[in-house]
Design a protein around this nucleic acid. Structure first.
Lengths: 119, 119, 119, 119
DNA sequence: GTGGTCTAGACCACG
DNA sequence: GTGGTCTAGACCACC
């Protein structure tokens, strides 16, 4: 796990994204325990409050559930995954429109897709 | 021109985007004068410092050039366009990676491209 | 019996409520023995300390009485029932105040009462 | 404004409720500015972080929107109000069912409603 | 040991 | 002056 201090995004956002990826991609499975707030804090050399903030956000966003005294655990990600897909696809469509307006051809866009999926 | 105070982005970013769009799309042509800082400020009922900040950024990003005592003018947008293309393509690649991680197939992404370019 | 780990309430509160319901509704009768702390703990796969805590609370709240070396037994529920009524009525009054502040009319509240008691 | 330190609920929850009431009841109108984080903190003799937590929660729950450098402002409460009504009514129904099971008569419940709305 | 709340005090970007 | 982020360190309830 890495934190990029040059990244303009706040640290807790970076941490949130790390865990979101791991949950959505199945690296952390349903009901699997996440590392404790304190463990992540010491590993990343970051204040526990910042990790806590990330975990709390992940809970309100539905990615994890926390049990005081036991730990934090991954939620079932199937619902989240489909929602995430919709969001990302909407984002891509917006950018494809931009490219279209900038005069890029369909073939060039196809090539970009191929490039990503064949690497 | 509209400013959305509920938008999480700072006001000067919103103003920058407004002018970027107009320059890239040709609404404001090469060497055409932009409205003065004061005019924009009064029209949008916004602090002139904020407009100034937007113009300063647009200048360092190469969208406009300023002539002391005369005003700000649009740069040639052809160069900017290719830069913009690179940025948007980078953005799309990031999102394609996300979709790949979420288990979306190459064919589905191809379909999205087709959908946009054939509408 | 079920424990919901996602429930924000602590586990011992959930266990307390389970037994309160059974005592007030008569499923566990006056002077009937409750299952032992150890049995509940093994059945629910929960730390015996937690069950102990629940039983201790139930005793101080007057729902059960414990006899050293024999076990825990249900109290007479008639007294408890009137206490329970008071608590629930207080809760309803709080919520009626909220509805009043939200602009709901007395008639609408009357209808809600009718709906419940005539179904 | 008052904070009850004996209340088991965290301070930020109490503060959230104070502002929710004022927004839902119309005391704070749409787009009206809330007192600044620091002002509330000094008035209640509470750490600014705690107020900030309350304001941030209110924003994610849709009660206010915050503009960095300008302040926090009330959202349009009409949507929130109808949602709130549904929640409170559901809560009352749950409690009415409890009373019904405890043997309370419909007339007694009617009297409670009258009591609240005629005081 | 776990998550959760709170304080005190600092710094930043924005307007 | 405003909201927002972060640190350091404390305390609590729960398990």
């Amino acid at each position: 796990m890495f934190i990029n201090y040059r990244d303009s995004r706040p640290i807790y956002e970076q941490i949130k994204e790390l865990f979101k990826q791991q949950i959505l991609s199945g690296i952390i499975k349903k009901d699997e325990k996440l590392p404790s707030v304190r463990d992540v804090a010491t590993e990343l050399a970051i204040n526990p409050n910042t990790i806590q903030r990330a975990y709390r956000d992940l809970e309100t966003e539905g990615y994890i559930y926390s049990v005081a005294g036991k730990g934090s655990f991954a939620e079932d990600s199937t619902m989240l995954r489909s929602q995430m897909q919709k969001d990302v696809i909407a984002e891509i469509k917006k950018n494809l429109h931009k490219l279209k307006n900038l005069g890029i051809q369909k073939e060039n866009c196809m090539d970009i897709v191929k490039e990503i999926f064949e690497e």
